[in-house]
Design a protein around this nucleic acid. Structure first.
Lengths: 268, 268
DNA sequence: ACCTGAACACCGTTCAAGT
DNA sequence: ACCTGAACACCGTTCAAGT
């Protein structure tokens, strides 16, 4: 009865994470084949090279890749198990041989996205300010590429192998640069949430939806009542700020604030 | 063909918003009856006091209130139109007489939540730092109460009447305190996103789900490999920080950063 | 051993028909 | 004028049956 818990073996140990995924991969790691705990589900007994009967199994990687492709092309809502099965040329029931259900699949898609993060090694070797900026930007770049997938990283705490490796590297970097344990955790958490918060507002959905929403908002500009909303009217010309500029502004605020706290800590 | 655009008249004019809903209602405004553009759909022709035939219409307010109750009690996913209709003792088709569809209903629920924001008038009258803190906290308090509804405010730009009134008051406050137009917009946007980002991580879902996830994360603590993740292990005891403390930490970082920028601006 | 069609209990949305 | 049952085309998930 019920599908066996297939996920237990795949999740390497990691404690509480109340922050998020600022990521570092300096060396040339391939997107999703490295740093992954091997899937042992088919290696039970003393599995020799004997060819099992039936069709060859669909590789997990292929399923996750196809799922991400659907999310990128058509949005998160378009990723139904039926659509995914169709793209893979199989049936929906087949997917349940590889994943406990939809949410496990989504978690794997999220970790695959994290696996694409690349940071500039030189920038990370600089002072902590530039290092933090580069880490934040590296994740932001990936989420710009996979903007439809951003909510996946926000709605559940990423616990996949890439998430854990990258969190480790970010925390190590801060501790090495002389941050106290408390300030390192605070800095990591805050910056990570900053990145995700902005990424989630890049574009909720597919292109047609974005166009419709943009048009809707534009229409509202014209009908703004300057008497009811004088302050808003006064800054209305500034308000469709390019999101990338806003991201940088907020990031600099955080780093400026961290510098103040760090100075206080060191002189105390 | 298709449902007529019922939403056009309800949305008062407002320009682009690239930030979010830091809110101010100082006076004692009731949750959702004030500041609302009247619904004119049933006032066509010279509508006298003549009683129309058929059942009396279900009040819009009641529908929205019931929807929010479902979201609060059972989570966002539990809000299906069937469940809502059942709670109201009617059919799903009835709901389409009042709302264009599910997404319009959700937008109204979001604005109703914003209508519950209350700020402490004394705190807002203080210096800009305390004023900003109180605005942020006031919204955060409401989102703690309606934590399941937080994603509604993040996934679409709030354009309802409460959202607009509160944005106006926040921007006015900053401009009155001597912020430049640019810095006021930046401060408003950043603080708003901060609040929402944390609120969305208060609890993704209903109680049983939260318990399951907490247990899952706890299990990961025990299996953490200190050799693979030394930095993470070193701060592991700090990492389930109470979310309220983390919220305050990040908020103070932002305000500290804004103070630096403001000083630079004033001395330049 | 692995895949699959068909079923189950849902979902948002529409519309002809009721009162 | 307003409400409604029933239908349409979906959805995630399960399971007995195929090869």
């Amino acid at each position: 009865m019920g599908t066996p818990r297939q996920s237990a073996a795949r999740q390497a140990g990691f404690p509480i994470d109340n922050g998020y995924v600022v990521t570092v991969i300096v060396s040339g790691v391939k997107p999703s084949h490295t740093g992954r705990v091997p899937d042992l589900r088919h290696a039970s007994a003393a599995a020799g090279p004997r060819r099992p009967p039936g069709r060859p199994p669909v590789p997990r990687e292929d399923i996750v890749a196809a799922a991400l492709a659907i999310v990128d092309d058509e949005g998160l809502d378009a990723l139904s198990l039926r659509a995914l099965a169709q793209r893979l040329g199989s049936g929906t029931a087949t997917l349940y041989r590889h994943f406990e259900g939809r949410s496990e699949l989504l978690a794997e898609v999220a970790d695959r996205v994290l696996g694409e993060v690349r940071v500039d090694a030189d920038a990370v070797a600089e002072g902590w300010e530039d290092a933090c900026r580069e880490l934040a930007r590296a994740l932001f770049r990936v989420l710009c590429r996979h903007r439809n997938a951003a909510p996946l990283l926000a709605q559940r705490i990423p616990l996949g192998p890439h998430a854990m490796v990258q969190r480790e590297r970010a925390l190590a970097l801060l501790l090495e640069r002389g941050f106290s344990r408390e300030l390192a955790v605070g800095a990591y958490t805050t910056i990570s949430r900053h990145v995700l918060g902005y990424a989630m507002q890049l574009g909720g959905s597919i292109a047609p939806d974005r166009d419709r929403e943009a048009a809707e908002v534009s229409a509202q500009i014209d009908t703004l009542d300057g008497r009811r909303f004088p302050a808003t009217a006064k800054v209305a010309d500034l308000m469709p700020v390019p999101i990338e500029a806003e991201f940088e502004f907020g990031l600099n605020l955080l780093i400026e604030g961290l510098a103040v706290l760090r100075d206080r800590e060191q002189t105390a």
